[in-house]
Design a protein around this nucleic acid. Structure first.
Length: 546
RNA sequence: GCGCCCGUAGCUCAGGGGACAGAGCGUUGGCCUCCGGAGCCAAAGGCCGCAGGUUCAAAUCCUGCCGGGCGUACCA
């Protein structure tokens, strides 16, 4: 049994025996400091109110009931807390369970039979992906993987907005670059896209097509738009490939129109009286529900806005039968999110159907100091180039090692660093060390045939027990990281495990210790399992050698 | 102005009601014949932005300020 569950079960049993109320959730925490033992419950605090007895008294009685429990070496009441020190045997049971579970360790089945869609990146095809998109790509991919671990069937989706004003601006910008390559001094529109990448394509087109398209007319616009979108998509695919992100479904805005979803979504909102007309446009009455502004849904020229299509898109997601939809979006979308959530509420969607994973922006700390990226201004670090420079593993890890809603400073110097000061290498190297040890053991012929059956009783060193306790947390970390969209918790956990392993490895001899060796290899086998599983969830490799 | 997010060690950040506030980097001082030193050990370093409030208990919850980011489009 896992450690927290062990304490919870024993406490519940003791409470039931005394005919005290057994709370549905018995709070059990890791002890904050060694003298508090291994685990602690503060269940005495809520109980004391109910029983009309001081917390210390409740804790004392509870501790008395549990001292004889075979899994606990010591059960000590301190104030209202009850501190548990576990017997090594209880920890060894955990280790045995981990090894028995193997690669299934950390997986859950809460999502069995349920489906989740994670929509992320969804960048307009107006340029290659940058380090700014990377946060979203890594975050979405890891959140999807976390849900998969919990048994959900998961669809990774990219929403492709290949219509509208921005696409026209892109086409116009490309055409200007093309004209420049033909020798005209046609300027890129001020609000257009100024990146060098369009100039390169413009030059290619000038070579291929010659001076054929001199004026900006409708056929030219259509031609350059198609060409631009196609080229941009190719770049985006290259960037995604470079960091190992794959999508299951690509949904185009145009499809939503063609299938009549936009019209239907609007009609439903109108039927519920949520829409009004003003200045020839149709507006969503949001301020009535406490939001700070009403957005336009249908422009006075009859075309739907981004918000309108977004609402229709979620109607479509619902009809596809997803139990949960997660949209990963940047902080610039908060207003949009509130509008969509409101619209879905009006349309009668169940609460919690759509959850936003919102993240703050990335700044890069490099040679030129801290800089904000801008695709439009052509000031960005392309994903493909970044991945080529620091590696896919580092690129991905750095993007998820911070809480999504915190601003992230990408430290280029640290990312380039290949020593253990770089947390990615620190964790990977922990895995490598164990792999290397197992290779060595194999060579010496001391590797036990089956780690699950070895005698674990030699594992009594505090470092060894600390490692087991940390490994024991892994399934909880995965669960919480998924539900709270918090992959950084997993990074932290892996760094903690590695931080326990390295000193242990440096101090304690593993091989050539007779029966102790087998026990220690079993422990390291479990550690390796957690490191490998954790890194894999993050989309980072767990190398056998470095 | 209004809405959302963030202010924790010199830097980058964890912790988001419970016991003396944590990590990595940086700084300072030690340790390398040893399964991979791409390392290990130790020390210094904090009115947890400020001020009130709620609570047996606040970095954590509430209110008000101050500072930063993003938004506040018939762009997406």
């Amino acid at each position: 049994m896992r450690l927290e569950a062990l304490v919870q079960a024993s406490v519940a049993e003791a409470l039931a025996k005394r005919r005290w109320t057994v709370p549905t959730e018995i709070p059990v925490d890791r002890a904050a400091r060694p003298e508090h033992g291994d685990l602690v419950t503060r269940v005495a605090f809520p109980l004391s109110r109910e029983l009309g007895v001081p917390p210390a008294e409740v804790a004392s009685q509870l501790a008395g009931d549990l001292t004889a429990h075979p899994s606990f070496a010591k059960v000590e009441p301190v104030g209202g807390f009850v501190n548990f020190t576990l017997r090594p045997e209880a920890m060894h049971d955990v280790l045995r369970q981990v090894l028995a579970d193997g690669e299934a360790y950390g997986r859950g089945d809460e999502g069995r039979g349920r489906t989740v869609q994670v929509e992320f990146v969804s960048s307009n095809p107006t340029g290659p992906l940058t380090i700014g998109h990377l946060r979203q790509a890594a975050l979405g991919d890891v959140v999807a993987e976390l849900y998969s671990q919990l048994g959900w069937r998961c669809t990774r989706e990219y929403y492709l907005n290949d219509e509208g004003r921005q696409m026209d601006l892109l086409a116009r910008s490309l055409w200007a670059r093309y004209r420049q390559a033909c020798g005209d001094d046609q300027p890129v529109p001020e609000d257009g896209y100024h990146g060098e990448y369009l100039a390169a394509i413009g030059a290619e087109l000038a070579d291929a097509w010659g001076d054929a398209h001199r004026t900006w007319d409708e056929p030219t616009r259509a031609l350059f738009r198609d060409e631009a979108v196609q080229r941009m998509m190719a770049m985006i695919h290259e960037d995604l490939e470079a960091i190992g992100v794959r999508f299951d479904v690509w949904t185009k805005e145009g499809d939503l129109h063609r299938r009549g979803l936009v019209r239907r979504a609007l009609a439903e909102l109108q039927a519920r009286g949520a829409v009004y007309e003003k200045d020839g446009a149709l507006w969503l009455a949001s301020t009535k529900h406490g939001l700070s502004r009403d957005p336009v849904l249908l422009r006075s020229d009859g075309t739907p806005t981004y918000t309108m299509v977004d609402i229709a898109y979620h109607l479509e997601k619902r009809e596809r039968g997803f139990d949960l939809v997660v949209d990963v979006q940047g902080a610039d979308h908060v207003d949009e999110q509130q509008q969509v959530l409101l619209a879905l509420k009006i349309l009668g969607f169940p609460d919690g159907f759509l959850r936003y994973c919102l993240h703050q922006f990335v700044t890069v700390k490099g040679e030129e100091g801290v800089q904000r990226m801008s695709t439009r201004a052509g000031r960005f670090l392309r994903l493909k180039d970044l991945a080529a420079e620091v590696g896919r593993d580092v690129a991905r890890y750095f993007m998820v090692m911070r809480k999504p809603q915190s601003h992230l400073v990408f430290d280029l110097a640290l990312a380039r660093d290949t020593s253990m000061e770089n947390p990615v290498y620190y964790v990977q190297y922990a895995h490598t060390r164990i792999a290397s040890l197992f290779r060595e053991a194999q060579r010496e012929g001391t590797a036990p045939p089956d780690l699950r059956t070895v005698d674990l009783s030699p594992l009594t060193d505090p470092c060894e027990l600390a490692l087991i306790k940390e490994v024991d947390r892994f399934p909880d970390v995965v669960r919480v990281a998924a539900h709270e969209f918090a992959p950084h918790l997993l990074c932290e956990h892996l760094e903690t495990v590695s931080g326990l392993l390295h000193p242990y490895y440096a101090r304690v001899r593993i091989l050539g210790q007779g029966p102790v060796t087998a026990a220690r290899l079993a422990l390291l086998g479990a550690v390796r399992l957690v490191l490998a599983q954790g890194l894999t969830i993050l989309g980072v490799s767990a190398p056998e050698e470095m």
